[in-house]
Every structure is written in C-alpha cells, then in structure tokens.
Design a protein around this nucleic acid. Sequence first.
DNA 1: CAATTTTGGTTTATAAAATAAACTATATTA
DNA 2: TAATATAGTTTATTTTATAAACCAAAATTG
Lengths: 94, 94
Amino acid sequence: MLAELDPLLHSQLRLAIVSLLMGVEEADFVFLREKTQATAGNLSVQIDKLSNANYIEVLKLQSGKRPRTICRMTREGRKAFENYVEALKSYLPI
Amino acid sequence: MLAELDPLLHSQLRLAIVSLLMGVEEADFVFLREKTQATAGNLSVQIDKLSNANYIEVLKLQSGKRPRTICRMTREGRKAFENYVEALKSYLPI
DNA sequence: CAATTTTGGTTTATAAAATAAACTATATTA
DNA sequence: TAATATAGTTTATTTTATAAACCAAAATTG
C-alpha cells in the first residue's frame, strides 16, 4: 500500500509529455509545446531528462529545413509509465 | 484535456497524507509518520502546508501526556482531492 | 538582396520545493 | 536522578521546476 511514485514521472510537465506520447507513434517538439503549453526552455529540459532516463527516444533532424526534434516512447518508458499508473492507484479511489 | 494538477497535492508525501486521511475520520502524527515512512521533519512541514491551505484541520493536544497532533480533512480538502483525481485522469489510461 | 523577424530550439540563472539534520521540550525508564 | 525515548519544530541543504536570455538557421519584407 502507498507505492513509490517514480519521481521522473511524478512531475506535471514530464507526465504530460509521456501521456501525450503514449497516445501516438511519435510527436515533435512543436506539437508537445503546443499541447503542454510549456515554454520551450522548460520543455527542452524535461525532454532531456526523459531521454537520459531512456524513457523516450529523441531524434534531432536537420534536413536543410528547420530543425525537427521527434520524440517517442521507448519500451522502458512505457513500462515505467504503466508502473507509475499502478503505483498512483494505491493513492486514489479508483 | 490535460488539466492543471494542484501542486499542493501533486507531491508524493502530501498526496500520501491526504490519501490516508481520506480513508479515516482522523489520524495523528505518529500514525501518519509510520504509514508514510517520512521523517518527522518532512512530515511536519508538509502537514503545515496542507493546513495553511486549509486542506486539513490540525489539532495539537497537550493534555499532561505527550503532545498529540491530530489531523483530519476539511471539506475544502476533500473537494481539492476530488478535483485532483479528476485532473489526473486526463493524464492516465483510466 | 540586405535587413528584420520568426522559428526551433539550448543554456544558464532564478525561484520554489522537498528533504533531512539539528534542535527543543516533555515524559519515561533504569 | 541521570539517561533515553518520544513527539514534534526549525533551519539548512539539496533538488527540481521554470523562465529568461541566448543562438543559429530560415523565412519574410521593404
């Protein structure tokens, strides 16, 4: 009862990022910024943290065009999210 | 979609405190410390924050015996918790 | 086409939060 | 009665979140 809450996911912005990514194959920086309403700086930092933890995979494209940063969940990230959700349930009347 | 998460409740320890209090009429400091495994200092600080926000009501008894700090949810606190749970659902596959 | 603005970010500085360590006062025990 | 334990609070430290300042390339404008 009252399981540990993965601190990497227990943060509003990172949870939002992961929650969005769980629903799609992949999403880019601009999409995430618009959906989360975060500032670019904040989003950049949090994407890095998720990436360093290997919860998401980040591809930085530079194809003559403007840069494009594409994110997607890793298997490890999906597992972590599922664990987080289970852990959360121990706190909630669900 | 992706509702605001009340920062006062989106904290593992405070969420634990509130989650425990939601299940009972009242609980004292020692009970909360044992259940949450928090240090007394940390627990004390977080109880203060919840109390200052009027999410919980705190009674400090000094009846010749050792001190006894009793906490219980306020109506406002219950409402806040319910809102928080609803908001969380926008992030989760529930 | 040169200057300006916009886009898509990163880096760094600041503010806020969580947490533990140090401390206090009373009570209990040896 | 001296030592220890209990029930906390206060303060200092570490960590985290967040925004502001910055940068390079692309698009726009006059």
